[in-house]
Amino acid sequence: MSALRVLSTLAVAGAMRGMVPRMEAAAGVPVAAEFAPTQGLMPRLRGGEAADLVILTAEGIAELAAEGLVDPASAVDLVRSHIGIAVRAGAPHPEIGTAEALRAALLEAPCVAYSRSGASGIAFAALIERLGIAEAVNARAKVIPAGFTAELAVRGEASLAVQQVSELLAVPGIELVGRLPAEVGTVAVFSAAIPRASAQPEAAGRLIRFLASAEAAPVLEAAGLEPIAAG
């Protein structure tokens, strides 16, 4: 029995890794998931890389559907995700409750870590431009191509880590300071869909239904995500 190959955004990595046995029971086959930013997965899928199920930003799924690479009828919005800030466990928590407080915290931080290609990193880069602090922040920032920014905070290489809350919580040894304030924060929607070339579309459909179910919702919530259509 071949494994169901899943290419997924990092945002749901922590939650999915915590419920592999239940995912496999729901799908009826072993599940082999690989996690990377949406912007890293899109070129691979466009280049013909095989996958049975994809979980990407809603915008990414829509683009692939328009290009005929995924079945739009299979698409399901799974979760909403907020961008947050984390520090190494035991480190002081800066005040980030307002846009002005966040601006001050970012300017005072010795080093801010964010991702270049993830949805959170793209949004954060635009945010510091809007706040007028991009040059100052980037002069001391650690910008990683992909992966978990909180790992830099744990290692002491960055004082603040910026990423989707679920991605921050996936790293042991950090403390979540909180979400970006609503006035400047962005909400991402992550969706699942079945590629038209999927070798196991029925198993993929069963896994999507599980991930969108009430059974999966508590795990998604514990991982820092907001389930959209549990039931």
Rank of each mutant, 00 (worst) to 15 (best):
L131D: 09
R209A: 11
L56Q: 15
F124H: 08
T38D: 03
L211N: 05
P218N: 06
K142M: 12
R196L: 05
V171P: 10
A204V: 14
L107K: 09
I83M: 14
G90Q: 11
V70W: 00
I85V: 14
R209T: 12
A229E: 11
R179H: 11
L69M: 14
E167A: 00
V70I: 15
L78P: 12
G231D: 01
P218E: 00
S120T: 09
M16P: 08
V6N: 01
R196P: 06
E24M: 12
A217L: 05
E67V: 09
R196V: 14
A197F: 07
G48V: 06
G90D: 01
P37E: 12
L211C: 13
S159A: 06
R22F: 08
A146L: 06
G121P: 04
I228V: 11
L160G: 03
A182Y: 15
A109P: 10
T57S: 15
V31E: 04
A153R: 04
R179N: 05
A182I: 01
L69Q: 05
L10S: 08
E100Y: 09
V184G: 08
G40C: 07
P110I: 12
P30L: 08
A99S: 07
S81E: 00
A13E: 06
L176N: 07
L64W: 07
V12F: 05
A182M: 13
Q163A: 15
A91K: 10
G147M: 10
M19L: 14
Q164K: 01
E67I: 10
L220R: 00
A36R: 07
R140W: 08
L168K: 02
T149N: 10
E157G: 01
L41T: 00
V79N: 00
E202Q: 14
L78C: 13
F35Q: 03
V187L: 15
L78R: 02
S117V: 09
V12G: 05
Q200Y: 06
L4T: 03
G84P: 01
E183S: 10
F35Y: 14
A150C: 11
L102G: 10
V165P: 05
L220V: 03
A214H: 12
Q39A: 10
P94N: 14
F35L: 01
A217N: 07
F210K: 14
L176G: 05
E167T: 11
A161F: 02
P43E: 07
G47H: 01
L7H: 05
R80P: 07
P21R: 11
A62T: 00
I96R: 05
V184M: 12
A161C: 11
A15E: 02
M1H: 10
M19P: 00
I133F: 09
Q164E: 02
R46N: 09
A212D: 04
V79C: 13
L169I: 04
L127W: 00
I55K: 10
L220G: 04
L53V: 13
F148G: 12
F124S: 00
L160A: 00
L107F: 09
L53W: 08
I208C: 13
P21F: 01
